[in-house]
Amino acid sequence: MRLIFDGIKNLIIGLLTTAKHLGRHNICIQYPEEKYTMPERSRGIVVLLSDKETGKLNCTACMLCMRSCPTSAIQIESHKDEETKKRVLDEFVVNFNLCCFCGLCEEACNFAAIKMATMYEFSTWNKEDLVWNKDKLQETGRDVPYEKPVRKKPVAKKTAAKTDEKPADKPKAVAADPNPDEKEVEKPAEPEKKTEVEPKTEPDKADDKAGGEEQK
């Protein structure tokens, strides 16, 4: 008998718990009329960033993103310009059929050239349309806000000009940077990567540094 009463009581408690939800505000948003604002770190589509004043791509064809991509979704073609001895980007293709949206390319880039924007609505009717080339990536990335990374001068290399700008810039300094574009959170990560890269004598890395500084 006790069992029966317990059973009935718990059945009724279950009913009341479900009924409690009738009065609650619904938690659905009706897409596409209402859209969810994505957080800024949200990993959506890959875009190429351009300089805000000149409009040229920030990319220096260092191929770091291509080497970090786990699915080989990025293909880069470049050639070395004979006069300036720098690398020039010919073609930058991202195949979104392969991209797994992991964000490793964005983290590998030292030049703020590639970023994952928050856009997620780019479905197409056939697979070929998901292979985006440099122009389309640049076009989509025009309005994406970004911060230029802190470029610490390499200690090992002795370059003549522009060393007085940041002589006291220590890798772990967080506050008091004259450059207003900096985000505090990113800085501890960036300089650490650079301290790793600089002492190594790999030739292409050194070239990148030289090329990057002169661009800036």
């Binding site: 939800h21 009738l22 609650r24 505000h25 619904n26 938690i27 659905c28 009706q30």
Partner: peptide, 11 residues
């Protein structure tokens, strides 16, 4: 069923 589950149902 939708309102018991805090969603909207056909709209």
């Amino acid at each position: 069923s939708a309102h018991f589950q805090q969603r909207l149902g056909p709209m």
